[in-house]
């Protein structure tokens, strides 16, 4: 026994392992972590480098120009249209998807008959795995024609709001349609995370509300929703991140044109990701750099969204009930 104790002390206390096996293994794992950092740094460096080159070649303001002609003489390109398209379609998607996702999550956790709830949750989990190109295919072939009728109706009855006034004829390949398709795409992921959160509300809080004579909705309003608030936010941010970066579904459904229009039902527009996918093939060197610059802007936006989500969750910790 005397021989094992000193050995034990050494291998347990030292962070710098002395055994060769320990050294190799910890070196390997640390090396993997460093590899990841290197990749991240490489991404940042290369993208920024080419972005700087691109912007320096841009003869107009990168952020406010409404045109995309980096191959021209002089090169003229700007991301205003792309920013508008990305933000607007994502907002439409969130406005539709978040309430519906909360509703479905509540349905699975509190309203569905118990035997239905488990398979339902399973199916929604699977739906989150459907590749986006397939959503794009279905959207282009089915959703667009179906929405034509809805667009007409919106134009007729809500056209007095500038947004729903359809000024251009043409199929429903608009930012609005893209928003709806994105909503359908991000629905499963927001629902899944939100559902997990709702299921984790301790039964005793729900029982406390019930014992006071609350109806089912009141129990949800008093115990479940407040407890799950930060979870709902983080789930929504996950969905938003996906909507912002979605490429193929948008590329297939949106009728590409480089313009900003407040008439959301009109075909046309562009998003960051869709623009890159559409234009990279025929782009020359300047064109590629310009696209890379727009990609970096998109990346920055998604970083901001994720960071904001984390900050919100951190701030609400005191009232989240997680400590209770």
């Amino acid at each position: 026994m005397a021989t094992t104790t000193p050995e034990l002390k050494r291998s347990r206390s030292a962070k710098s392992a002395t055994r060769p096996g320990d050294r190799i293994f910890s070196g390997l794992s640390r090396g993997s972590g460093i590899t990841l950092l290197v990749i991240m740094a490489a991404i940042a460096v290369f993208l920024s480098y080419r972005t700087v080159i691109a912007i320096s070649k841009d003869s107009t303001n990168f952020f406010t120009t409404f045109e995309w002609n980096p191959a021209g003489d002089p090169p003229v390109f700007g991301i205003a249209v792309l920013a508008f398209g990305t933000v607007v379609s994502s907002i439409v998607a969130m406005v539709i998807a978040v309430p519906v996702a909360i509703g479905i999550a509540l349905f699975i956790s509190h309203y569905a008959p118990r035997r239905l709830a488990k398979p339902l949750a399973y199916v929604v989990d699977l739906l989150a795995a459907v590749p986006s190109i397939i959503y794009g295919l279905w959207g282009a072939i089915f959703l667009v024609p179906y929405l034509a009728g809805l667009n007409e109706w919106l134009d007729q009855y809500l056209g007095w709001t500038y947004v729903f006034d359809k000024a251009n004829e043409g199929p429903a390949r608009s930012l609005f349609t893209v928003g709806i398709l994105l909503a359908i795409m991000i629905l499963p992921i927001i629902t899944n995370v939100t559902r997990e959160v709702f299921l984790q509300v301790p039964k005793m809080h729900e029982e406390a509300a019930l014992a006071l004579g609350a109806t089912r909705w009141e129990v949800i309003r008093m115990s479940v929703l407040p407890f799950g608030r930060s979870g709902i936010i983080s789930a929504s941010m996950l969905g938003l991140g996906r909507a912002l970066g979605e490429t193929m579904a948008v590329a297939v459904v949106l009728s590409p044109s480089f313009l900003i229009s407040g008439h959301l039902l009109d075909p046309g527009g562009g998003t960051f990701a869709q623009n890159i996918a559409a234009k990279f093939n025929e782009a020359n060197e300047y064109g590629r750099d310009a696209l890379i610059a727009s990609g970096l802007v998109l990346f920055a936006i998604t970083l901001l969204v994720n960071g904001a989500a984390r900050w919100i969750i951190g701030r609400r910790k005191e009232y989240s009930g997680a400590a209770a």
Binding site: L244, T247, I276, L303
Partner: peptide, 15 residues
């Protein structure tokens, strides 16, 4: 890294 849009990852390897 979890938040990288897939097209940006593609662009990086491209460059």
């Amino acid at each position: 890294m979890t938040g990288i849009p897939s097209i940006v990852a593609g662009l990086f390897v491209l460059t």
